[in-house]
Design a protein around this nucleic acid. Structure first.
Lengths: 101, 101
DNA sequence: TTTATATATCTCTATATCGCGATATAACGA
DNA sequence: TCGTTATATCGCGATATAGAGATATATAAA
């Protein structure tokens, strides 16, 4: 992970809503039990809009930021877009931060 | 550490120069071998200005940000202000981030 | 084909952050 | 006391970020 990538990752985490989203995605069964689709697909954007209480466009932008940073991935199924955490990337990030700090 | 405090800490780390400063302060003997005062006092602000290559006022503001976040402490000796890392706080932060993420 | 749904993107406004020079403050030295 | 040094603070212009509504796009449903 380059220095620029690390920078992008920390900036991605520097907003509380984006940290909340990552946290929620860690236990979808706990936070998105009402999703109509199997949670094995991930969590669809609309569920996150709803939970965060912010506008659809705002959450879409936050999800894009998290994805650019590498923390999450998306998979489109039909008209929905499902998001999941990239656990390996998150672990690498924590290790790298530990070293650098 | 409250959620607001965690937020302030992450924001403090979200600027590369501030991460550099924390990194430099980890090994003062390596990065500030030319300081005229004993490194046991910490590293004085002027040395950091010089190393970072940014203006005195800019670095002073970055140091204030790091200090508000709890990552560093300062001790004034004569006309100098010496900065040191708060290792315990940094460890707590990393642990907390690991849990929350 | 029309309509509805889900999401991304565009555009705008408001606010936050960065970096700087200028100035204030404090301590020291002549 | 007066000049010098070290640092903090202020005020400003430039840029980045956040949030929202409007719109575009893609898929699905009627």
């Amino acid at each position: 992970m380059s220095s620029a990538e690390l920078d992008e990752m920390i900036k991605a985490l520097s907003h509380p809503v984006r940290r909340d989203i990552l946290h929620w995605l860690k236990q979808p069964e706990l936070f998105f039990a009402d999703q109509q689709h199997p949670l094995s697909f991930g969590v669809c954007a609309g569920m996150i809009d709803q939970k965060a209480g912010l506008s659809q466009s705002t959450i879409s932008a936050h999800l894009a930021t998290l994805q650019r940073a590498g923390f999450i991935s998306s998979k489109k199924v039909g008209q929905w877009n499902f998001f999941t955490r990239n656990e390996a990337v998150i672990q690498q990030f924590l290790t790298r931060l530990h070293e650098q700090l």
